[in-house]
């Protein structure tokens, strides 16, 4: 009774985070750094100051989207590694619409967001279609699609969105999510209104999956394709739908960067990692909308706070990445934690 499945879903991530932090502390200590100072610097660098707080929330925003994207696909039994590419095309589309058109904000901003969602959706649709119709594994296609997105967007930025520059032209005011008010309030961090959209998106995902028939079908396909087919559901359609929605979420994550954080799109020499981190966020969040928001908060905190660790506590940023990796490791090995907990429960009885 005490250890219900739900309880596990909450306990396992919490324990893995704690284990990750402890293991990180041990590593820091063994390399001669003071872990207490290190974590203090991490905290000060993420919440210690209104500026850092703003930056942390800014970083959390795209993480929520990519986390939702990966989680949504997971729930339908699909592994969307392509969130990275979907972020990039979403970013590109939002900046494109944001710079190319002139319209009042009430039209322009939603249009730019829609373009991003659509671009991401298309990028998800292709692997979805291939999976549904030809049975091609979505992991392979999405990985390939990431590279296509990266290099095509770089080429487009150079040739179409700017005149052979390293970044696109800036978007118009009317498509921008950035707000002077928020920026001034957080002593010029890049905090923008995207966080509200992200929280709203999390609610939509929850509602869609838990409260609608379509969501039930998606989850059902995720649990067991054959049973779903036997029950008369169109598995192929659901696979495509799941990838499209997942891609749309990731595309919106790109729009957060394009319309909020940057206001333009630089050419990328490597992946943004937003999509890949989204996999960890989804995993840590138990593929649940509310969990994803919390996990995104944690990852944003770690990411921004980590920047402060080398300066404030002399801990090399490489070690910070090891700590983050350890947390992911412990989440991924949740089976072990689950097993230990079960043991514990049996002995307790």
């Amino acid at each position: 009774m005490m250890f219900t499945n739900r309880m596990f879903n909450i306990l396992v991530p919490v324990i893995s985070v704690l284990l990750g932090l402890i293991a990180g502390a041990i590593i820091m200590a063994s390399f001669g750094y003071n872990p207490l100072n290190g974590y203090q610097a991490l905290w000060a660098g993420s919440f210690g100051d209104i500026y850092y707080f703003g930056e942390t929330i800014r970083q959390v925003t795209p993480y929520i989207f990519t986390g939702l994207a990966v989680a949504f696909a997971f729930r339908s039994g699909l592994f969307n590694i392509g969130a990275e590419g979907q972020v990039i095309v979403g970013w590109l589309a939002s900046v494109w619409v944001g710079a190319a058109f002139d319209a009042p904000m009430i039209i322009h901003l939603p249009l730019a967001l829609l373009a991003a969602a659509l671009a991401g959706a298309i990028w998800g649709f292709i692997p979805g279609l291939l999976k549904a119709k030809l049975g091609v594994h979505e992991v392979i296609i999405t990985i390939m699609m990431n590279y296509i997105a990266l290099h095509v967007s770089n080429a487009l930025i150079r040739s179409v969105l700017s005149e052979n520059q390293d970044s696109s032209d800036p978007i118009k005011e009317s498509a921008s999510l950035a707000s002077n008010w928020l920026m001034e309030m957080t002593s010029y961090s890049r905090l923008h209104f995207g966080i509200l959209i992200a929280l709203f998106a999390a609610m939509i995902m929850w509602f869609l999956l838990e409260k609608t028939t379509a969501g039930f079908e998606l989850r059902s396909v995720g649990f067991n394709q054959h049973a779903s087919r036997y029950a008369g559901m169109n598995v192929g359609k659901n696979i495509i739908l799941a990838m499209v929605i997942s891609g749309a979420f990731a595309g919106l994550g790109g729009a957060m960067e394009g319309l909020g954080t940057f206001g333009y799109m630089p050419t990328h020499s490597a992946f943004t990692n937003l999509g890949f981190d989204g996999i960890a966020v989804a995993l840590l969040g138990g593929n649940n909308a509310f969990g994803v928001v919390l996990a995104a908060l944690l990852f944003g905190t770690l990411k921004i706070g980590a920047l402060n660790m080398p300066t404030a506590a002399d801990v090399p940023s490489e070690l910070v990445e090891i700590v983050i990796a350890l947390i992911i490791f412990f989440v991924a090995s949740s089976y072990i934690i689950r097993w230990v907990l079960l043991r514990f429960k049996k002995e307790g009885k």
Binding site: R190, P266, A270
Partner: peptide
Amino acid sequence: ESDADFMP
């Protein structure tokens, strides 16, 4: 680590 880190 990435372009987004410049500002912070």
